[in-house]
Simulated scan of single mutants.
Amino acid sequence: MSALSQMLVILGLISLFHAAYSAHEFSAIATKLHVKPDLPLDIKLETLTAVFLACFGLVLGSESLKPIAWAAWSGQIEKDGGAANPFRALEDRSSYLDIRAKRKEFAEWARNEGAAA
């Protein structure tokens, strides 16, 4: 994350906490007065601005997007090497049974048994 994005996120979060505290104080005062008014416009705008700043800072500091196309993604994985492959554990598992090889072995065994009998 760059310094600008970190500052935007921190500023957004501080402003969001301040808006929440202001809303709490306003509701506490309104409860004491036995009134049910809406939140003031400045608290609503501060909340929306704070959320926007925090989200913008997070988006600004995020990593670059990965390719969406499967071929481009798998090509990038092949270039990077096997460590980045999320399916490596499935492909390299030792308990994997190769059905085609077993069928071939069975066909050869059946032919040898048929020829011997």
Rank of each mutant, 00 (worst) to 15 (best):
G57S: 12
A23S: 06
A101C: 04
V35M: 14
G82R: 09
L53M: 11
Q6I: 13
A71V: 13
L13V: 09
P37G: 11
N112R: 09
A116I: 06
G82I: 15
A50W: 01
V51M: 05
G81S: 14
R88L: 15
M7G: 05
I99Y: 08
I29V: 13
I68R: 03
S15I: 01
F26Q: 10
V59P: 00
A117S: 07
A84Q: 06
A71R: 09
A89R: 08
H18R: 04
A23G: 01
A19R: 00
V35E: 13
L53G: 00
K79E: 13
K32E: 08
L58I: 08
R111V: 01
A20N: 05
G12Q: 00
A117M: 07
L60P: 02
F106D: 03
L48K: 14
A116L: 14
H24K: 04
H18D: 07
F87S: 10
Q76N: 08
L16V: 08
R100G: 02
S95G: 15
R88G: 04
L60D: 02
S62M: 01
S94D: 00
L60E: 04
L16K: 15
V35D: 10
K66N: 05
L13E: 13
S95A: 11
I14F: 12
A116P: 02
V59E: 01
E113A: 14
N85Y: 10
D38R: 12
F56P: 00
A30G: 06
F26G: 01
F26V: 02
L65G: 04
F26L: 11
S27N: 09
E25Q: 11
F87R: 03
E78P: 05
G75C: 13
C55M: 08
E113N: 13
N112C: 05
H18G: 06
M1Y: 06
M1G: 11
D92K: 10
E105T: 06
A20G: 07
S62N: 01
L58P: 00
L60I: 03
S22P: 00
R88D: 12
A50D: 05
M7V: 10
V9C: 10
T47R: 03
W109E: 09
I29H: 06
K66W: 07
A115C: 11
A83E: 15
Y21S: 05
H24P: 01
Q6V: 13
F52N: 06
V35R: 14
L65T: 05
F17Q: 04
L8N: 09
E25V: 08
Y21W: 05
E108K: 03
E78S: 13
S15L: 08
G12H: 01
L33E: 15
G75A: 15
K66G: 01
L8E: 11
H18W: 09
W70S: 15
I99H: 05
V35N: 12
S64C: 04
K36T: 09
H18T: 06
L4E: 14
V35P: 11
E25H: 08
E113I: 14
A89L: 12
E91S: 12
R88E: 14
I43V: 15
A72Q: 12
V51R: 00
F56N: 03
A71D: 11
D80N: 15
D98G: 01
E91G: 04
N85F: 05
H18K: 03
V59C: 12
L53D: 03
G81M: 14
K66E: 09
E113V: 15
D92H: 04
F56A: 15
V51A: 04
I68W: 12
I29N: 07
H34R: 10
S64Q: 08
M1V: 07
L53C: 07
